[in-house]
Write a protein that binds this DNA or RNA. Sequence first.
DNA 1: AAATCAGACTTACACCGTAAGGTCGGAGGG
DNA 2: CCCTCCGACCTTACGGTGTAAGTCTGATTT
Lengths: 234, 234
Amino acid sequence: MAKSKPTAGRPARPSRRKPKTRPASGLSRERIAAAAMALVDREGLAALSTRRLGSELGCEAMSIYHHFPGKTHLMDALVDLMLKAAEVPIIGEQGWLERLRRAAHGFRAMALKHPKFFPFFATHRLNTPAGVAFIDGIIGILRDAGFSDRDAATYFREIGYYLTGAALDETAGYARGPSAAEPVSGEMIAANFPHLAAAAPYFQPQHFQATFETGLEILLDGIWQAHRSRRRAP
Amino acid sequence: MAKSKPTAGRPARPSRRKPKTRPASGLSRERIAAAAMALVDREGLAALSTRRLGSELGCEAMSIYHHFPGKTHLMDALVDLMLKAAEVPIIGEQGWLERLRRAAHGFRAMALKHPKFFPFFATHRLNTPAGVAFIDGIIGILRDAGFSDRDAATYFREIGYYLTGAALDETAGYARGPSAAEPVSGEMIAANFPHLAAAAPYFQPQHFQATFETGLEILLDGIWQAHRSRRRAP
DNA sequence: AAATCAGACTTACACCGTAAGGTCGGAGGG
DNA sequence: CCCTCCGACCTTACGGTGTAAGTCTGATTT
């Protein structure tokens, strides 16, 4: 960024003439992306249209196109915004297992910070700058631990599978209410699906944290075991 | 396409008068849903619009609304279609662990049968009839194994997280090509992200199966261990 | 034969993303 | 000082979307 350079406009502008026709709204990629994310957080992905975003910003829809070539690019910016704000702690002094654990918790926290946006995030490859940096960091933890490239790739993926699925369920799953047009009724479930009925209470949000953690620990433990046996019998 | 046509004969309709204005296309929920799924399989989710589907079926867009109250209901039907065609093998003579494993593989096979549709599937709660039946079956395996309702719910979720994430990656992930509007280039990755560059070869489709299986086995093994210790020290 | 009705079609509306081109205010050079 | 240029924003328009409302038509029922 820093494209605007010296002038920076703002300071020392004594002009008392208020430009009535041109409000100098001062659009920018950052401001547009921030407004878009706020809109999604507030009203959901479906509310994010160029016209709606324009009215949110106090400009016309097409003005956005001066800063982003298309909506796709704006969505990319949102992905990057989310990842950067997350500041998933990848580096640190702890051992590799603990760093992996913290990165996983950081990922979940990031998703929960923007639950309405996460379904988009999950269904799009994040090969944006911040995205590849994030991925590189996680794989780095595994490679630093001494895993082969193949094992690092495999375990990265498996943890990623789990994290994606977990965050998707917590942000878009049952706890957010039914999504089918004609959801199966509670009575129907109670009458015909005893197993689901018995488990249903534990699908409530207050159990999310514990469920997430025990599952993550199973995975991490499995990876840790593989690490041990690898050192013992190469 | 085939819109005019010879009636295709509903049985025993001797009327020689060809109804020129009304082609007797014979729409039905099943036929519409099947055509919709075929269209998605062929051209992707974005191609599924009411008008396009109508032209595929040889009818007008609004005719579909006589069989489905809205597009949402049609999407529900697709979810159910996918689940029913999967026939995920939940019951069987094997032990609970093996049944769990087979259900997991069945889920993955189902996703891979309709890769273009799966992202929709993953981001929508499947509280349709076939959906709850499926869920009930999996939880039933765990409860039959002797797990408490709480543990059954927890392990069901954790397996579900993994399956969803894995299928999402295989159907919509890197292997399907970049999705960002301006993806980070390969040279950029090679130059600045050594860990990702080292792992990238193992992100190719030929490694999907092995990655999926070792991760699943880690999870199943963890659940199996919990089952053992539970019997030993209740 | 008249009335009813299911199953299609037609029209229309409000929204979407965006291509193309217009307009205006300030900056820079003569 | 004027004039040109240009970045930033606006206007208009097009083809797409889902769908509410109304219409037509042939078959079935009475």
